[in-house]
Design a protein around this nucleic acid. Structure first.
Lengths: 191, 191
DNA sequence: TATATTATACCAAACGTTCGGTATAGTTAT
DNA sequence: ATAACTATACCGAACGTTTGGTATAATATA
């Protein structure tokens, strides 16, 4: 009954994600976002009446959905814990493009962007990461408290190696983290 | 021969640091910086003719000097490795205000701020961190390659727990990291 | 000692530019 | 024809920066 979009929602969000991830919220200007998507400002406002805020929220939600489907869900499957972790590492490699991409949760977590508009999303996202990992470790027979500690460590290592890989312009730290991930999680006595 | 500054250089840099650390480069507006320092915009330009760029560079240099004096130098002292690490943890607690402060290296490491104006500083800073830690571990009798691996892990954990502490608005992750730091570095088989 | 001069620190106001956002008119596909 | 979509032009506000000039303190000259 109407005309087709010239860029589908999925790729649109994907392009917006790139900009927010590389430049942060303040650094992601509408000009950037327009250039990255091929849509003029007015068209972006047609798609996102809430403006930049809505774009960033949609980007966060989309990333959250991807993580839910590709990370959390496989961790709830019937595979063995070890195979789940191996799969996790592969998906992380894909998600962060081998360490070349920054993490949105880091880039959008400034203390007062729009009075902490994203802080709830970010906090929940971290909790989801940690919880789903913890459950796998508990399932594998590791003491619950220890499971949680190891999971928190793993997520911290992930974020940290991403920061360092970006800062040193070298993906090795992240790559090494992925390789050591099974050890970190399943037999922490040798990491 | 002239009028007195109404804010000395050290506290001036300190105030600027707060803003860059909390808001990132793009988020740190001249209005922010002016309010934080008590100097009007034009006065900031008198102190820093190179403008915002120069301010950020001075902030980075100042932080680098602090780290050199308070972190790197003590690691080269005559203390035992274990006591050095304990001291390190204390200084890190101070430097990052118990996990409440973000790391400048993370906040200023966007891929293309002014064509990577800060990327050299940031890369070198990470290298300094890692090298000085590695040397301590080697001194303590740990295999050089393993020493380097452990040091990289420790720095990654530090950055990661800072990211998570900020994202979850809870300094526990960073605090726990500090507590586990001696173990991570000196007897990695139990971390 | 008193005055003129110089040097620095500071600021109000304005610069041109870009920001996020909007109003309107036109185009396109059904 | 109608509704979906896009492009152009525009807006007030904020951006980083510059200008033109005042206030304060030390120095040089008398």
């Amino acid at each position: 009954m109407a005309r087709h979009s010239q860029i589908d929602n999925e790729t649109l969000i994907q392009r917006l994600t790139q900009v927010f991830r590389d430049y942060g919220y303040e650094g992601a200007s509408l000009t950037n976002l327009s250039n990255a998507t091929g849509l003029k400002k007015a068209s972006l406002y047609h798609r996102f009446p809430g403006g930049k805020e809505e774009m960033a929220l949609e980007v966060l939600n989309s990333a959250g959905k991807w993580v839910e489907e590709n990370i959390v869900s496989p961790l709830n499957s019937t595979l063995t814990p070890e195979r789940k972790i191996k799969k996790l590492a592969k998906k992380l490699d894909e998600f962060y493009c081998g360490g070349k991409h920054a993490c949105l949760l880091n880039m959008l977590a400034s203390p007062d962007i729009k009075n902490g508009l994203f802080s709830k999303h970010i906090k929940e996202a971290f909790q989801v990461w940690i919880k789903s990992l913890t459950d796998v470790l508990i399932e594998s027979g590791i003491d619950p408290k220890d499971s949680r500690r190891r999971s928190e460590n793993a997520i911290a290592m992930m974020q940290g190696t991403l920061v360092i890989s970006r800062g040193m312009n070298d993906t090795k730290p992240f790559k090494n983290f992925l390789k050591s991930l099974p050890n970190i999680l399943l037999n922490a006595e040798k990491n």
